[in-house]
Amino acid sequence: MRHKFFITIFLLICFSTKAQDSVTLDTIYANDQKNVALFFPETIRQGVTGSDNFIFTYNRDKEQYFGLLQAKPGKASNLLVINKNGLIFSYIVVYKKQLSKLNYFIPSLSSIGNERPKKTESIVVDAPKKSIDNKAYYYQEFCSYLLNRKQRIGNIRRQNEGIVLSIENIVFDKEELYFVIQIKNTSTLDYDLNFLQLSVQTRQKGKKKSLQNIYQEPLFIHNRPTKVAENKTVRMVYVLPKFSLSDDRRAVLELNEKDGERNLSLKVSHRYINNPK
């Protein structure tokens, strides 16, 4: 059994080395004074480091979503982690005496591949069941991650009397779409929100053409304010179940002012919905 274990470790490190040849890996810093926590989108099945001066610990008896990394002074190495669903994550690990970051929330999109690529093309892998609290926690952390990235998908914006509504990014992760939304108030009056909602708009066929809006209920909303003060900007994330649109449909983001008329309707082409980041 011990012999098979070391063979497995050797093969994993070789696989990680090949992956690094074609993928630019992120760097994670650790030391021997503090635990650096890595939170993954699925439970950890296996984790291994490339040298003895780095230790990655995780619960081998009961699969959990996080592992702890520690390091002793020495040369840089690598960390390879495989989730329960087969996703592979690889990082350069470096010893650093002073740490500025102790928690890493790893999104699915940072995976370098899957250990079963042929099977995942045709077989849907059932995700492990999660409690509502775990799901909300993941949404919360991934939304924070997206706000910190500050990545733009295009120039999707509308303006009305000093209020600018824009969609900065649309990201697909697991089975959800994440809409990163910004409201900027360049006016001299505070803006009180009545509602901010997303709908799917369909053009009705026939002699009398009309538009039908179908409201999309968010699964989670992160950082939505009730007020945007004058000369202030707020950013938030709406999490919705994954959906796609045909050519005759589009998404519409509506911003409505409470006790006011500075309302905005932002139309989003099906191209952005069907091709998220």
Rank of each mutant, 00 (worst) to 15 (best):
A127K: 12
G154K: 05
Q64R: 09
S111H: 13
I170F: 03
V81F: 08
E257H: 11
I221G: 07
S16C: 12
D248C: 03
I153M: 10
V23G: 04
V124C: 05
T24S: 11
F56M: 07
V171N: 00
R224K: 14
V200M: 04
M236V: 07
I167E: 03
N223M: 04
N35E: 13
Y29S: 07
F66L: 08
P241F: 03
T49E: 06
N53F: 04
K96E: 14
I221P: 00
Q182C: 11
A71W: 00
M236F: 15
I123N: 09
I153D: 03
E176R: 08
N223A: 14
S100A: 05
D133Y: 13
N103R: 11
S100G: 10
F220M: 07
K97F: 08
F179E: 00
L266C: 05
K207C: 08
S199A: 15
A251N: 03
S187I: 01
L264T: 07
Q197T: 13
D26S: 13
E115P: 01
G154A: 14
K129C: 09
V180S: 02
H3Y: 12
K97P: 03
R116Y: 14
R249G: 04
E63G: 01
R249K: 15
K130S: 11
K118P: 02
N78E: 08
K96Q: 15
K72G: 11
F40L: 09
V268Q: 01
S90F: 07
S22I: 14
K258E: 13
L12Y: 07
K62E: 15
N256Q: 12
N274P: 06
F179G: 01
G50P: 10
A229V: 09
N274L: 02
